[in-house]
Amino acid sequence: MVRSRHLRLLLLPVLWSHALENTTNVSHRQVAPLVGEDCELPCLIDSSAKVLVLQWSRPDLDDIGYLLFYRHPRVRTHYQHPDFRARVQLQDPGLDHGDLSLVLKNVTRNDTATYECRLLLENEVSRTTTVQLTVRDVKRWSEEAVSGVRGHLLLPVTALLLPLLIMMMMIVRVVVLKRHLTQPGLGLRH
């Protein structure tokens, strides 16, 4: 009895994954937090829908575990990937308001990946939301922002400074020419 229960627990995520592969609705999102921030991976449904199974996963981690695995009526922590223990929580833990978004705490560059929110609803509809998470490094992001500003300011600054430079060169030339012509023995005198 204990052995068959243990076997069912081990096979449960595999069976649900197979059932969720034939999704009817798919949506895609992008999220771009900075290193060290908490971020929300969005996954929304109609608030009246009843969730039977919810899987937050990262396909590149293969079958090592899930970020979060929920089977009605609770989250199953023994299926959780070790890298995400104590780092994830549902935005709405009771799943009462249609917000199945996952909060990922203290993101690092290693968290940059594609995430999937797969769910099976009571009316046998399955859905997948794919979220592309790109974690930005503060230093790299600020350097890119500054270089972008420099590139955008180059043309207007050049357009303003070039006429001023030409005018200054003309003034200097007139002053030099006037001094040269007013020197004794070189021509014009006052």
Score class of each variant (00 low, 15 high):
P93L: 05
V172L: 15
S17Q: 12
L119P: 04
V2F: 05
L155T: 12
T158V: 08
M1G: 10
E124R: 14
Q30Y: 03
L54R: 05
D92K: 00
G36W: 14
L95Q: 02
V2A: 09
S142W: 14
R140T: 15
V14D: 07
T129S: 12
H78G: 00
T24Q: 15
H72F: 13
C39G: 01
I171E: 15
V88A: 05
M169Q: 15
D60W: 09
Q183E: 13
L177A: 14
L153N: 05
R118Y: 01
L12T: 10
L54I: 08
V14A: 04
L12E: 14
S47D: 11
L12P: 07
L52D: 05
P33A: 09
V26T: 13
R127H: 07
H18T: 10
T182S: 10
T114G: 01
R173Q: 15
V53N: 00
V51M: 05
H81T: 06
R8G: 02
L11D: 03
E40G: 00
L120W: 09
S47E: 15
E144W: 04
R3A: 13
H180C: 14
Q30F: 03
Y79L: 08
N123Y: 12
L68K: 04
R87N: 07
V172C: 11
T130K: 01
D46C: 05
K139G: 00
